[in-house]
Design a protein around this nucleic acid. Structure first.
Lengths: 233, 233
DNA sequence: CGCGTTCGCCACAAATTTGCCACACAGGGC
DNA sequence: GCCCTGTGTGGCAAATTTGTGGCGAACGCG
């Protein structure tokens, strides 16, 4: 899977730099533009997967850039503005941005929005089957179902997500905090023992059926992992 | 695994206190500073894993502290400020903070940001192999497992970490204090003979399987080392 | 607005690891 | 060989960490 391309346009080079660093570290391929004209050029050239646009830029401003982009593309666009006054304008149909962010922002917040928008787009294209199979286990994120040995096991949303995460990274140990971050979100603030509760319920349901080829194992003092016992791929 | 160290600098003792409590509850090792000078001192001394800096502090302000820190370190820094006006300055390259929080904040929000930044840093360094192989020995920190001659050897967390440290620095001698500092943390208060106990248990488990190509050796009057006997890389 | 689920969390029990002691033993200097 | 100091080791109780039953609160759904 090629990297997701992100185009960041802001005339403040410091801001593009900081956001760019963040984006790179999250695994995006980053390109930056310092004004509207450059942004449009790079857009045509690179076909990025998402665009971050500052509203205030010299010559061609963010509104204009977004409008231009929308003539040829439905690529997700997130606008950055100094204050909230432009809300209606930005989100309105004549501009058609997908989200907007008000300064001051934190880079983490921006990246969260980027992820959210990309996820939204992704979910709107239900092309690829979200199914995971390992031995006697199969987990399906499309319809949130799971089966052991061919027989359906009714699991709740959180249980499915937990199983999906663990089984999708076979043998990797997840700390409770890892799991809280992945499943509950980075801004969740609560008891990490909650993870134990879900593991408990998950095990109880799964163990109702036999599955000698794998198990959810506790790594004492560390966390949990999905351990496969055969040597399947 | 030693605790993550967090340094919180704010001249308002109520703020450091509340944030400190929250951070402790999340398992961080917390240190606080009441002004910029103290923050820099503690920073040099403790090498924290993340720093929370209030912009407004007596004498040396948060900007200055961050700039100083950046001269020697890329440790994540989160700045706290009263209002958004300093946004561009903080996020700019000449300061180089990693995130930005505006007062009033909720402690939960702050901790969420801390987690997010730490996670980002962590994810940005996926390069280091979490697997160590030397001859008949392999140690894996991803799944906290170890094997000798292909056969899995169940080890506890401390044993794995001890083995990882020793084997990862082949032929280097570690004093008991070295090991206490690395594995237990510099503030651990206890008997250094505890290390012997772990070496004992580690040897017992490892020696259950044959491994003629290496051994954990005692250097009399000094400490322990992992000695490789072949001339493998 | 009820009703059945799901979810987060608590409290207590169980399981496991860990730190340390005590004593035996080994190493090194004289 | 003798003594002093450092190390190996069995054992144990304390400290941690995890398993689990259960209970409201929140949620989702007619």
């Amino acid at each position: 899977m090629p990297k997701t391309k992100i185009l960041i346009a802001d005339d403040n080079r410091q801001i593009t730099s900081v956001l760019g660093e963040y984006a790179k570290k999250e695994g995006y391929e980053v390109h930056t533009a310092a004004d509207g004209g450059e942004a449009l050029e790079l857009f045509a050239l690179l076909k990025p997967d998402i665009v971050l646009l500052d509203v205030m830029m010299p010559k061609t401003d963010g509104f204009e850039v977004c409008r231009e982009i929308r003539k040829t593309s439905t690529v997700p666009v997130i606008m950055i503005t100094a204050r909230g006054e432009d809300f209606e304008k930005i989100m309105g149909l004549d501009i058609g941005a997908d989200d907007y962010i008000v300064k001051p922002f934190s880079p983490g917040e921006v990246m969260a929005r980027v992820r959210a928008v990309l996820r939204r787009i992704e979910n709107a294209n239900p092309q690829k089957a979200q199914t995971l199979v390992y031995g006697s286990l199969s987990v399906n994120l499309d319809d949130y179902s799971a089966a052991v040995g061919g027989e359906n096991v009714p699991l709740t949303k959180k249980e499915i997500e937990l199983l999906w995460t663990l089984a999708g990274n076979r043998n990797k140990v997840f700390s409770r905090d890892n799991l809280l971050n992945s499943l509950w979100g980075y801004d969740y603030f609560g008891d990490s023992r909650t993870v134990d509760s879900h593991i408990k319920r998950l095990r109880a349901k799964l163990d109702a059926r036999s599955h000698p080829d794998w198990e959810i194992k506790t790594i004492w003092g560390v966390g949990y992992k999905f351990e496969g016992k055969s040597d399947e791929t």
